[in-house]
Design a protein around this nucleic acid. Sequence first.
DNA 1: AAATAAAAGTGTTCTTGTTAAACTATGTAT
DNA 2: ATACATAGTTTAACAAGAACACTTTTATTT
Lengths: 226, 226
Amino acid sequence: MFNETKTHEITVDVVIITIKDDALKVLLVKRTNEPFKGRWAIPGGFIRLSENLDEAALRVLKEKTNVDNIYLEQLYTFGDPLRRTDARVITCAYFALIREEDVDVFDSEDVTWHEIYNLPPLAFDHKEIIEYSLKRTRERLEMCPVAYQLLNEKFTLTEMQRAYELIMNKVLDKRNFRKKALASKGLRELSEYSKAKSKRPAKLYTFDEISLNSKRAHFISNKKKV
Amino acid sequence: MFNETKTHEITVDVVIITIKDDALKVLLVKRTNEPFKGRWAIPGGFIRLSENLDEAALRVLKEKTNVDNIYLEQLYTFGDPLRRTDARVITCAYFALIREEDVDVFDSEDVTWHEIYNLPPLAFDHKEIIEYSLKRTRERLEMCPVAYQLLNEKFTLTEMQRAYELIMNKVLDKRNFRKKALASKGLRELSEYSKAKSKRPAKLYTFDEISLNSKRAHFISNKKKV
DNA sequence: AAATAAAAGTGTTCTTGTTAAACTATGTAT
DNA sequence: ATACATAGTTTAACAAGAACACTTTTATTT
């Protein structure tokens, strides 16, 4: 089998990230087959001959979440011969930032969200892939306000700041954050307010324009309503 | 053949960049087979079952240039079903920054350097791959002084500035450039001077430390002498 | 030996962005 | 009405980046 010219299997794996219950989470599926049967893994699948890599990643994503308004970006291709013990599988990893409100979740015992900072043991090199997704997300966040991809259509600046804090894993200064956030192109102030429980309501904002200045970034959006 | 679960062929292609004759150049090979027979293309090859992607890229690079002191980084994986007309080939593209002095060139009619800003018609999607390499190189340059990878072991600040100008494709202010360059960690001033023809000799510098702050960057170095 | 040519080398000002840091305002619940 | 919880707001110091022109050094020419 280790014929030197034989081609390999190639898959896409998608790190699906959201904010849920005030935590940054990743969607994992429990493996049903060996190797690593019973372990958690990033959802993935084979690439069909008729689809390009983005389409394959989007398909995998939709199978799990049914989202249609997402940030999806090719992350890196992992191809160590020893990354899987069963076969030589090269995987093109993607990561997606999605809104919890957009997800038709099939949260079950076998498909569920896990805190990114408290992951269970994972199959293959999936821990490395998730860690790299986090790193890339941080890089993106320093370039453009991608965090709104994790927020609801309408959000408060406090929610936006919290998203940044969860991604960067550090607390941010409120005044400096708001100054910078308000300067970001695309952010639009609404005339609505959050319906708070027992506190002052906050002004709601939304993001109109998408100006991600990375060619690596493939923004796939079917905006529903603004 | 368009069976939906069949796996695909997978290759690595390497965009090899250098500075030569005061121009930013890419190494291209002339295709000997259809499709695109006779057209220029980026060097590439199949990935062997025993090697990882970096190793495959390095092998392709060595076949063409015999360098052993290079900057090599995975760029992006291109997998459009229509990117090749002959077969479904997914390619993991890399780019390499090399020093002309390190290259054992096999500059021939079929393997030669081309100016990156004046490319001939290329096979497949190779123009897109080269353009993306240039974009990524610029991104890297804004983060860290990777340009020294294109310079000789010992170089003048003027040569370094010229490398930046060729990559960024714009002229830079000499005083600002030098101020910033001298602040970069790893740059070491030598006590030698360039042997000029008919002008004032310039102080020579070298780069000691490599502190590339990107996990995407895989620096493969077998330093010969400093 | 003097003049010339060619590139090396050098500082300051202004603008802009970044960091740091504490109090007031507004609504709900009791 | 009071207490509570969260929203919202400004300024000063500092660092980083952009704009900008002349002097110095060496080799070559006359």
